[in-house]
Design a binder for these strands. Structure first.
Lengths: 170, 170
DNA sequence: TTGCAACTGTTTCATATGAAACTAAACTGT
DNA sequence: ACAGTTTAGTTTCATATGAAACAGTTGCAA
């Protein structure tokens, strides 16, 4: 969504201006913050867990056993954040850690029954929220949004790794 | 975009599961972070400003004069963040503050020529990035995305203010 | 006028964050 | 076998953050 009705790649006439409320990165940030904050309210107070903790519960919820590194990948969090969240979850008995047999650097992590119970309770709430959010859209629009997000994420990943070469085509 | 191909509002069969990578709030968060991080790289090092500072420059870039509170509203940042960013920008001579005539609580804020110069340099870069990002989309898709984001933001705002009544229709 | 509530912006304080340094374990090549 | 390198995860440190308390200003009503 380029600026206002300005056509993509159209050369700016005089001094280019930018309206924050129409700037895609800004809009994504505001929407994401609004949504995250609301979802966090679903579990923060009720279950006493944080956003990183919820994400870890979510990826381990299928009864999988993963290492900290694998969790970091799947949740798109960095390893420090994961490490700290796991440490909290060990304290609150939400997670089990056992040393790996083949590689003792990798610890195998599993949810405790207590955490699985929380998972079971949160999932319907989270899905219901997602459902409510997409109520603003038709079925077709929701399906299209899915594809658009996938493509934009791929593009954003590309631009993140090598933005300099592509961008200043000014 | 409800879970996988599950139809919206369909009753979950057994234990509901949630795949983070298909969960809309999660996807928005990852995309937003990727994008914000890349955009920040455009100006952080080159001009030595932070994300909050860039946002303030962006809203004042049209040579407007606003109070701190108005800036907070338009940038969707909280007043503490705005206060601190302004204080840094006063130090680095990016902003001018003069007491309001009618109401001495409100300080009138304007960009200095130095900040306007930064604005002029960043805007094309920011617009070029937005352009590159939407290259993953056709014109029609970009236009639709615009509308979808607007509607989802409105819906997210609604759900944020009174989520409890609506959500647990389980 | 003066007392009180509402408002604007700043500061404090406790917590969260990420980059970089670090520890320990496991490969690699000689 | 063992020095050098890579990998997994933790800790340190400096900074960022937001909630709540705060100070100063204004508006309103008795």
């Amino acid at each position: 969504m380029p600026q206002a009705r300005r056509k993509r790649s159209e050369t700016a006439p005089g001094a280019a201006t930018l309206h924050l409320t129409r700037f895609l990165p800004y809009r994504l940030s505001v929407l994401s913050n609004t949504v995250s904050h609301t979802v966090a309210k679903l579990y923060e107070k009720r279950f006493g867990i944080t956003i990183p903790e919820w994400r870890i519960i979510a990826v381990l919820g299928g009864r999988e056993t993963l290492s900290a590194g694998e969790i970091a990948q799947r949740t798109a969090m960095d390893k420090v954040q994961v490490s700290r969240a796991i440490s909290r979850m060990l304290d609150s008995a939400l997670i089990l850690r056992e040393a790996g047999d083949t590689d003792r650097r990798k610890a195998l992590l599993t949810l405790t029954p207590k955490a699985l119970d929380i998972y079971t309770q949160i999932v319907p709430l989270a899905l219901a929220y997602e459902d409510q959010l997409t109520h603003a859209l038709t079925e077709e629009e929701a399906a299209l949004l899915d594809r658009l997000l996938t493509r934009m994420q791929a593009q954003a990943d590309q631009l993140a790794s090598a933005p300099e070469q592509r961008l200043p085509k000014t």
